[in-house]
Nucleic acid binder design. Sequence first.
DNA 1: TTGTACGCGTTATCAA
DNA 2: TTGATAACGCGTACAA
Lengths: 340, 340
Amino acid sequence: MAVTIKQISELSGVSRGTVDRVLNTRGHVAPEKAALVQQVAQQLGYQPNMAGKALAARKKSYSIGVLLCSKGNPFFEEVIRGVKAAEKELTDFGVRIQLQTVKGYDDQQLKTAMQEIAANVNALVLTPVNSKIIADEIDTLTASGMPVIMVNTDIEGSRRACYVGSDYMAGGRVACGILRLLTNGQAHLGMLTGSLRILGHNQRIAGFRQIMKRDCPGFTLSELETTEDDDIIGYENTKRMLISHPEIDALFLVAAGIYGVCRAVQDVRRNIMPKIVCFDATPQVQELMQDGIVQAAIDQQPFRQGYESVQTAYQCLLTGKPPRQDRILMESRILIRESL
Amino acid sequence: MAVTIKQISELSGVSRGTVDRVLNTRGHVAPEKAALVQQVAQQLGYQPNMAGKALAARKKSYSIGVLLCSKGNPFFEEVIRGVKAAEKELTDFGVRIQLQTVKGYDDQQLKTAMQEIAANVNALVLTPVNSKIIADEIDTLTASGMPVIMVNTDIEGSRRACYVGSDYMAGGRVACGILRLLTNGQAHLGMLTGSLRILGHNQRIAGFRQIMKRDCPGFTLSELETTEDDDIIGYENTKRMLISHPEIDALFLVAAGIYGVCRAVQDVRRNIMPKIVCFDATPQVQELMQDGIVQAAIDQQPFRQGYESVQTAYQCLLTGKPPRQDRILMESRILIRESL
DNA sequence: TTGTACGCGTTATCAA
DNA sequence: TTGATAACGCGTACAA
């Protein structure tokens, strides 16, 4: 049977209260007693009992804020489903969620939203914008003792507690691998990324290039273009790309704007359709797969991203420590028509 | 905040003890009071608090038996890892696991093992052999009040509490789908199943045929052969198949014996290698994928099968009821070289 | 038949 | 600085 606080208190000859104070570093303990308790706990390999912890935590009623730059982005619907699933499981443990979404990527606006929501919660889960203003705000909250967890998008140069989300490099590698299999290793590639300024998109391309260089001597890159995550821009740029590069027989879609790209393909091409691999199996993409336009989608488990980020925030609140892992990365899954 | 027994007792004007007796149908309660409590609980949507339940259950120290026909089958190593992961999580809740493996599929031997292990545990997780002897033994244990849960393989005509494992039909469908993409829809197929007497294998073939009929007019089935899950038999039968059917350019491997099949392919074919899709990414299969012999493997999450089956058994013990779902099915995942 | 009281492990509070 | 005690939700032994 696992070690309990009671056992430690008996073995070290102090009260349960003192043991609790030592283990949770609440102070107000004589140094020699603290040292003794520490040693005994160490020796017995004490691991706090989750059931007991959860039950006691119920009295406190934690509040977790979830702030997503997700308005109008269907990808995040699954993330939100995951958040709500975690919320449901954690109500037993006295947790309530405050979910808020903002539109666009304006860092000033996001900062304001962060401050508002942070005033009412004990922990914060958010999709950051990659900007110094946001990094600083994260550091301010972290310094005030609030666990701040990134979901889906990471930010550089801040003291966020943890990142939960896609492994963009790995996703790019898998995308190249499946395209290699779809084309028998011979392809004239067109690449459509979202934006060259977005870290995740560039990491996907880097992963793709890595496999391409190593395993795909028969691949040539005809052109790299952007969609700005927009269907209309994606449509126009793809049309132009396909007309000026009639040899293109495979498309790697790095980010959003997928529907626009596919419409352009259908408008320009009649006979030989290019093989298309993209990311995120949103309902729209699922339809394109059903119609045989898109052959495969790489999925990075949006539901789990939402679920795990909230669970991680709760663990931080419960233990008072940052998570063991600095990054919790989702596996890249290959989805095809038959796996829907 | 969620509803508690205490709240129900206050609202219905009876003691906590009585509420407990009603909700857990322990009897010894006046009918009118029972009805009242039922109604109040219903109305408030009472859901027992897992933390409290677990904590109380700790006194009892449940024991769960896990009996696998897995000796010498590398697939089950991941299942066992999942079992051990669940064990680790549940030690806090007073659960201990008794794991036992047997070799082969002899139903008499398995029955004996079941009886031995069942004498010392409160719940049983097992991979059954599809035989009446085993079905009857499961029913005997179920009748004695023990939850009996099937993992990886289901059994027909028994009162097992639940099945946790592969969705064989879905796996077959996905296998056909990926083969369709690998071959551009044109293929002369060779199929190698494990045994025509094993339900799961036949279900995989049924799923495959379903998609083949619907979506793959360019597929023709050259031959269907068995490996008896054995590398040597797989080697011999594949060799014969490839020689008598030189047109074969795609292989669907339904079960084990994969290494033998691949060796035969390498021995017989020199130039044009067939596309190969198989099940379960064991270390051996991963190596074959690295070498480019096998293009894709369908994975049915062995780790989760082990983990979820034990968790399900624990839930049965905790609630005293069979699980909500009759079958807990794993998603079929496509693995390629780059996703390893 | 019904109610009370205690214990599970942890945490918070109050008194010493 | 300490220790004792109550509370969280549930299960159950025991008393009424």
